[in-house]
Design a protein around this nucleic acid. Structure first.
Lengths: 108, 108
DNA sequence: TAGTAGTATTCGGTAGTACAAGGTACCAAG
DNA sequence: CTTGGTACCTTGTACTACCGAATACTACTA
């Protein structure tokens, strides 16, 4: 699937939030997970900018831990604000999905 | 539903394409139709920029017609390239939808 | 021991998109 | 002749995903 970038705007951040929410993890692993899930073209740089934004907006808590497999990893976990944001994200997603699918079916 | 703008990026153009595809129509009416469909905050300015973009990219054909209800209306119709683009849009949408829904269900 | 590959983060710049805000034009009714 | 509804267009801004490049650490291997 070619060039989904424009369509991913706004949703990628929610996806990262969801991944962090299900398990405390770090940037590199999140990128791999997204690729695995079918977001094949998502690269590290993109994920890190999202991560930094999440941190700046106070939605996650970051902890640095040594790795044994290269440089230290920065683990991220959701805080209360992050969990709330995640819930909002899914609500928006369901809303948009229902509208667009309705439109697709020639919704009157 | 508040502020869906970021999440609509990339999808709004497809929605407009779909609306035009189902019926030759004009900017103002498209905006009303979107509002009706639940995209409540979409405003004229947004739709016109999309329409100009579609025209510039050669996906639609525009025809001006007098209206009797104010200034002349600019009707838009899809051409072959537009129909193709619309098909691509739906393919992308289905793809992204399946990926995100899988993620939501804790897809492994 | 030098080189390469894999892991991991950061930063600066770019392009695309929706939107806000403003303006223009035309008609009918009060 | 002013108001309100219809219809269109333009400019500027904020946000986001992406890319390229740099940095750093470890392990393997030629």
């Amino acid at each position: 699937m070619d060039d989904l970038t424009e369509m991913l705007k706004g949703t990628l951040e929610g996806c990262v939030l969801e991944i962090i929410g299900s398990e405390e993890t770090y940037g590199y692993a999140i990128t791999r997970r997204l690729n695995e899930l079918g977001f094949a073209d998502v690269v590290e740089g993109t994920v890190y900018t999202i991560l930094l934004r999440l941190e700046k907006n106070g939605l996650v808590q970051a902890t640095k831990r040594p790795s044994g497999q290269g440089p230290p990893r920065k683990f991220y976990a959701l805080n209360d604000a992050g969990r709330e944001e995640l819930a909002t994200f899914w609500a928006k997603w369901e809303y948009i999905k229902s509208r667009i699918d309705k439109l697709k079916e020639g919704g009157r």
